[in-house]
Amino acid sequence: MINEWQRQSYLSALGIENYMPRMCLPFAAQSRACLLPDLAPGQEISTSILSESQDAALDLNPISVQKSSSISASEILTDIIPVKKMTVTVNAETILQQLEIKKSPELNPFSLSIWRPVTGFLIIDARNSSLALPTELLLKNILLSYLPSQELDLREEVMRWPMVENRFVARTEDDARNELQTWLSVENELRPIQKLWLMGNNAARYWLEDNSPISESYWQQRSVVTHSSTQTLVAWVTPSLIELLQQPELKARFWATVT
């Protein structure tokens, strides 16, 4: 047992003013009253005085500790702290399965075509340059009929994702959503958007709220998710220019939707 004066010195050094134990362990020695030594005025407590005080406490309160070989330490601790039983066997296979479940699939790089034909009008189209289709010519014909009396700016801007190349960082769909939603939010702050067309799968999937197939959202006006809380954007979701060229019968429905 530690001397009470020494215990108080330790607690004082730790900055603890009051201390109360939460429980009493089985077979622990009983607590003893702290005997204050008789000190003359100006006399300091020394090691010998503390030792004499501790010996006196032992003489006044002799303790007999019962020993038992039939009760183990694990049985005593079981009564104090409930042991949580593991219901699932942990091995290398289960750990690898958990890692595979948590790991998000990596997304292949892609690019988008962006047009700003007039002020406040933004068009984002899914891009596939390997097909070499006249998408720019089709969009020009659409806009000449859609905005016949306005001067159009038909310069195409290509936005590639990921925007910053880093081969050491995994790129997932969540990463694409965060980057593109942030980009659209900044774009709206710099050049407020009054009309927005999202054309094709990659042009729409990262800005819509749900994860439903994009084809189910075609020909509808949908709310767009951005990181800005000042304005809510609404966009027409339509097939891409490539889809319109590959399926000419969709052009009539496209025109009826946007007009």
Rank of each mutant, 00 (worst) to 15 (best):
122 L>A: 04
122 L>I: 08
122 L>E: 00
122 L>C: 05
127 R>N: 05
128 N>Y: 07
128 N>D: 15
128 N>K: 09
128 N>W: 08
128 N>M: 10
129 S>T: 15
129 S>E: 15
129 S>L: 13
130 S>C: 05
130 S>H: 09
130 S>I: 09
130 S>T: 10
130 S>M: 05
131 L>K: 15
131 L>S: 10
132 A>R: 07
133 L>C: 12
133 L>G: 08
134 P>V: 10
134 P>Y: 14
134 P>S: 12
135 T>D: 05
136 E>C: 08
136 E>R: 11
136 E>G: 10
136 E>H: 10
136 E>P: 09
137 L>Y: 14
137 L>M: 14
138 L>F: 10
139 L>I: 00
139 L>Q: 00
139 L>T: 00
139 L>A: 02
139 L>E: 00
139 L>C: 04
140 K>I: 05
140 K>C: 11
140 K>Q: 12
141 N>R: 15
141 N>Q: 12
141 N>S: 15
142 I>Y: 07
142 I>A: 06
143 L>T: 01
143 L>S: 01
144 L>H: 09
144 L>V: 05
144 L>F: 10
146 Y>G: 04
146 Y>C: 07
146 Y>H: 12
147 L>E: 06
148 P>F: 06
151 E>H: 01
152 L>A: 01
152 L>F: 06
153 D>I: 02
153 D>P: 04
154 L>C: 04
155 R>A: 00
156 E>A: 10
156 E>L: 13
156 E>F: 09
157 E>T: 13
157 E>M: 03
157 E>P: 02
158 V>K: 09
159 M>Q: 07
160 R>S: 15
160 R>H: 13
161 W>K: 02
161 W>E: 04
161 W>A: 01
161 W>C: 05
162 P>Y: 04
162 P>E: 06
162 P>H: 03
162 P>D: 05
163 M>P: 13
164 V>H: 13
164 V>C: 11
164 V>E: 13
